[in-house]
Amino acid sequence: MSEPLANRRSVLRCMAWAGTGVLWTVAGGVPRSFAFSDRAGQIAAKDSGLTFVQISDSHIGFSKEANPDVAATLSLAIERINALDPQPAFILHTGDVTHLSKPSEFSTAADILKTLRAPVHVIPGEHDVIGDDDGSEFSARFPAAGRRGNGWYSFDAGGVHFTGLVNVLDFKAGGLGHLGDAQLEWLEDDLRGLSASTPIVVFAHMPLWNVYEPWGWGTDDSAQALAYLQRFGSVTVLNGHIHQVQQQVEGNTRFFTAMSTAYPQPAPGAAPTPGPLTVQPSRLREVIGLRDVQIEGRTGRLAVTDEPLARPA
């Protein structure tokens, strides 16, 4: 527990897009953090539990100035993941796999994702369900065991319960992300049989806390979902959507948004609109990347590391 101060600085550096990796460990709801470079040491030093990787917002089909080749940067992220030793148990893709839900974009994305050595679990972003009101087309493209309703599902791995939520359907005018009553009922039921000591990881595309309402960066009925999660000692919520690392703590629940593999977006309110943020091409890989998560087998602690594709020169 001697690291937190130093590593809090690391977090800030990362959030400022200076490119420093940060490793978070959540011990009974208390976060600790380490430098990313310690990952191998962490695994060697402790009993190596489950590790997984989160990627997000690959936006296959986007080709504008902010990143003319999003397929290349997704492939680079996958190259990094495939080089991890030990390999992660699986990859979570938290949505906006494609830019415009076009069949050709889905095909390209699927071809690239197939190069992952580990299996991938996918949940849709709003860019993946344009014209797909119930998420069925997306679910058909990325089948997952146990998908229910409009594509939500859960699974267990390494003693952790993973719940994938869909909050990108049925947006209301002027509104935010939306889970809907059917999904909330399912969630309540899904969690019912679990002991309060089971670590929970919730993954969804849009943030489940209110990051910035003027840009729609939140989920209008997330409070109900969080109420169902309240009794658990360790809840980790992983989102994408805003193309940058942001974090929030509420009780035993820790929220993290992830970088995109495609392009960054401005910090909340830092620009007139949330449109793509164009950085110098030589700096792009410092502001996009992936997230590595370790779960210690013995303690169920979660360690979260955000790793850009390149470190600043």
Binding site: F171, K172, G174, P214, W215
Partner: peptide, 10 residues
Amino acid sequence: YHCSLHPQMT
């Protein structure tokens, strides 16, 4: 009407 990608646009 609104934008289904950015529902804050109405």
